[in-house]
């Protein structure tokens, strides 16, 4: 076990959880989006610590863009995006707390009783990992990768069609 790896994982893990909690604690919706961005970035940093360099950089880049878009939507759609009115926008709090708590405890019980066998094996370098991933994408998993591309294309068309304002002739 590398002490430095464990320490960095714990540090970024605590940061990810803390910012995840802040998302639902703050009244300001813009702060919520920024807290989610920090949480996702901390998860990306955990990927980097776990030597998944490509995925770590991808996660940070993707989430930075995604959360910026989310912040814009927050300002557009929320009645009080700055949180100045201290509006409460929650419901069924007790049920949600129980559900989240039970989910957390159940997952922790499974994790800590599963008995994972060590030691952790070595991983290839970042360049070798990228080469292997490229071979996987363009080889055995090509159909899955193409299906994901098709899924994104379908979602883009569906989201645009849903969001477009109905024309007058459509409503007649």
């Amino acid at each position: 076990m590398s002490l430095a790896t464990a320490l960095f994982l714990a540090f970024f893990g605590v940061a990810a959880i803390w910012f995840g909690v802040v998302v639902f604690r703050t009244h300001s919706m813009v702060r919520s989006a920024i807290a989610l961005l920090f949480s996702q970035t901390a998860i990306g940093a955990m990927f980097l610590v776990m030597q998944a360099e490509f995925l770590g950089v991808l996660q940070i880049m993707m989430m930075a863009t995604e959360m910026s878009v989310m912040a814009i939507f927050m300002v557009m759609f929320m009645m009080d995006p700055g949180g100045m009115g201290k509006m409460d926008m929650t419901h069924q709090k007790r049920l949600s707390l129980w559900a989240g708590g039970i989910g957390l405890v159940a997952a922790l019980v499974v994790i800590w009783t599963a008995g994972w066998q060590g030691p952790a094996p070595d991983v290839p370098g970042a360049d070798e990992q990228a080469r292997l991933l490229g071979r996987e994408i363009l080889g055995r998993s090509m159909f899955i990768f193409e299906s994901a591309a098709l899924m994104i294309l379908t979602a883009m068309i569906a989201a645009t069609m849903v969001a477009i304002a109905p024309q007058e002739e459509d409503t007649q």
Partner: peptide, 21 residues
């Protein structure tokens, strides 16, 4: 036991709980 794995999975469990809430 692999401590790094336990840390990462525990963080995942906490994020799942917060997200579900």
């Amino acid at each position: 036991m692999i401590p790094e794995l336990m840390i990462a999975l525990s963080v995942g469990a906490a994020l799942f709980g917060v997200g579900l809430y």
